[in-house]
Simulated scan of single mutants.
Amino acid sequence: MEWNSIWLSLFGTTDYLGFNMGFWVSLVVVALVVVIMNVVFWNMKPYSETQSKEN
């Protein structure tokens, strides 16, 4: 699939602020991974010693 041609037909350019669209797509992907990792981390229950002794 030609992502450049699709992007070009939608927005009329393949760059924004001097950066290629690949930069912006990768930036968004990394930001989403960071947000998901933080949500998972902050929703984990803390480890306690009583849980490990019961097993």
Rank of each mutant, 00 (worst) to 15 (best):
M1G: 14
M1W: 10
M1D: 15
E2R: 10
E2C: 12
W3N: 08
W3T: 09
W3R: 06
N4F: 08
N4E: 15
S5T: 08
I6S: 14
I6Q: 13
I6H: 08
I6E: 12
W7K: 08
W7H: 13
W7R: 15
L8T: 08
L8K: 13
L8M: 11
L8R: 15
S9N: 10
S9E: 15
S9Y: 04
S9H: 08
L10M: 12
L10N: 03
L10S: 10
F11G: 02
F11D: 00
G12L: 07
G12T: 10
T14N: 06
T14W: 00
T14G: 04
D15I: 01
D15C: 05
D15P: 00
D15A: 04
Y16E: 02
Y16C: 13
Y16I: 11
L17D: 04
L17H: 07
L17S: 07
G18P: 04
G18C: 07
G18I: 11
G18N: 11
F19Q: 03
F19D: 00
N20I: 04
N20Q: 05
N20W: 03
N20Y: 09
N20S: 07
M21Q: 07
M21P: 00
G22W: 01
G22S: 05
G22H: 07
G22C: 02
F23C: 02
W24P: 05
V25S: 03
V25E: 07
V25D: 00
S26R: 05
S26A: 10
L27A: 03
L27N: 00
L27H: 02
L27G: 01
V28T: 04
V28H: 01
V29I: 14
V29G: 12
V30D: 04
V30Y: 01
A31R: 02
A31P: 03
A31G: 04
A31F: 10
A31N: 06
A31T: 09
L32S: 13
L32W: 03
V33K: 06
V33Y: 07
V33A: 15
V34R: 05
V34C: 05
V34F: 05
V35H: 02
V35L: 13
I36F: 03
I36H: 00
M37I: 11
M37D: 09
M37L: 14
N38G: 09
N38L: 13
V39W: 04
V39E: 12
V39C: 10
V39N: 09
V40W: 06
V40F: 06
V40L: 12
F41L: 14
F41W: 11
F41Q: 05
F41D: 12
W42H: 10
W42T: 11
W42Q: 10
N43T: 14
N43W: 06
M44G: 11
K45W: 04
K45R: 07
K45S: 15
K45Q: 14
P46V: 00
Y47I: 13
Y47M: 04
S48E: 02
S48L: 01
E49D: 12
T50H: 03
T50P: 00
Q51G: 06
Q51Y: 01
Q51H: 02
Q51L: 01
S52M: 15
S52L: 14
K53T: 02
K53Y: 03
K53I: 12
E54W: 06
N55M: 11
N55S: 07
N55V: 15
N55F: 11
